[in-house]
Design a protein around this nucleic acid. Structure first.
Lengths: 219, 219
DNA sequence: AATTAAATTTAGACAAATCTAAAAATAATA
DNA sequence: TATTATTTTTAGATTTGTCTAAATTTAATT
């Protein structure tokens, strides 16, 4: 069975929103997909008929095993293409999201497997997110939030909490990217800002909001 | 301005059909696109309103300068992706057409230019067709039809006349591909079959239909 | 030139995905 | 618990691209 680009986008959005254990609500989905609640209701009925999710009116929605499998396939393609764009075509890591959003809907299974092999079966995409393998399994990230990093422990930036251009613009300005090594020198309780130090640079402070949007792993 | 996948497919089909100097007819287009004449008429009105072509009812259709530019952009993407699939991802040259048909609609200009650079600005795709450059200019092929090749002149297969799986299957069976070097040893007037010889192989005959589907350049 | 045949266009309908506005169900609050 | 407020669903309309069947135009043939 094959699915439209729109259907795939709904499945992917539900997948990202159902990380907790509650059902995903119609309004949440409408916001995520920049559409209206009424449109979401219509589509949920359709996707339920295709057995991709369980849905009862007024009760929200959750992916079925089949829906999850489809979602993982799309996420796999998205992240492999992001890796390709950065690693092979030299895109900046902050400019690949929209292109990958289109490429993730290319249907050829063979293409995905050949691309994966060509790239050397990467485990994480350029934003630090894990790439599902062909069976849908992902490596577990031992990311911790930068705000929780102990003082004076050297760690490496391994992920970002959002893909917003606003965040990526700020990170670019501060010369912080995936792989950047840093340590936390002080934490200020007044505004929860933290002072960080990157090798060969002077220490500087970053806001609580920014620290919460950064994930690191100790090295 | 941006165009739907359907619109792009119409423009591409018209481009391929208008090689002669006559206008492209509604029925020709319907056959090419596996759709009905009535649907074509509807779409032609729409594309005319977008100034991509000139169309008068009952008189057929021809691309405008703008339409031609769009078509060349799509052809460029199609052939670059085919080159990528064969050259980088090791696809067989006979299995890339359908995938490229999807990839050609990815819209990012930057992606096309980066891909082109990564591939080394190739001039011809794996089927021997020229790849338009970023200004829409294509190298001219000095292809001649295999049926017209003089006896005992060594030539190299440089293009095929169609992408049909039937043709590609036959070529695979006979171990003929782009780049294969061969010469014509005899021509039989009875059925216009020709005997060809590939280095280190015994000579064998191929049908008129097959010979007409192969283009070669002398080396 | 008149008639038949073929190609093309119109008219009206349909499916997919969306929307607005109104109704119904659930949640929150007095 | 009764009453708002919020969320969600229904009903009906819209757009895009398609279709069938009928009408029109052009081409071919007698």
């Amino acid at each position: 069975m094959s699915f439209s680009i729109t259907e795939e986008n709904y499945i992917k959005a539900i997948f990202h929103l159902q990380q907790g254990d509650e059902n995903v609500s119609t309004n949440e989905l409408a916001a995520e997909l920049h559409t209206k609640a009424a449109s979401v209701t219509d589509m949920l009925k359709k996707l339920k008929a295709k057995k991709l999710l369980s849905y009862e009116r007024y009760k929200g929605v959750r992916l079925s095993a089949e829906g999850k499998k489809l979602a993982l396939g799309i996420v796999r393609k998205h992240r492999l293409w992001e890796f390709f764009l950065v690693d092979t075509l030299q895109f900046g890591w902050d400019e690949v999201h929209d292109v990958a959003e289109e490429l993730e809907h290319i249907s050829s299974k063979k293409l995905v497997e050949k691309l994966d092999a060509f790239l050397g079966h990467p485990k994480f995409d350029p934003h630090g997110d894990p790439i599902p393998d062909s069976h849908g399994k992902m490596a577990v990230q031992q990311h911790i939030n930068l705000i929780d990093l102990a003082l004076n422990k050297i760690a490496e930036v391994s992920g970002v909490g959002s893909q917003s251009t606003e965040l990526l613009e700020l990170l670019k300005h501060k010369h912080i990217g995936i792989g950047t090594k840093l340590e936390v020198k002080r934490k200020f309780s007044f505004d929860h800002s933290i002072e960080i130090k990157i090798k060969n640079q002077n220490a500087f402070t970053i806001s609580q909001q920014l620290a919460q949007a950064l994930f690191v792993k100790t090295v």
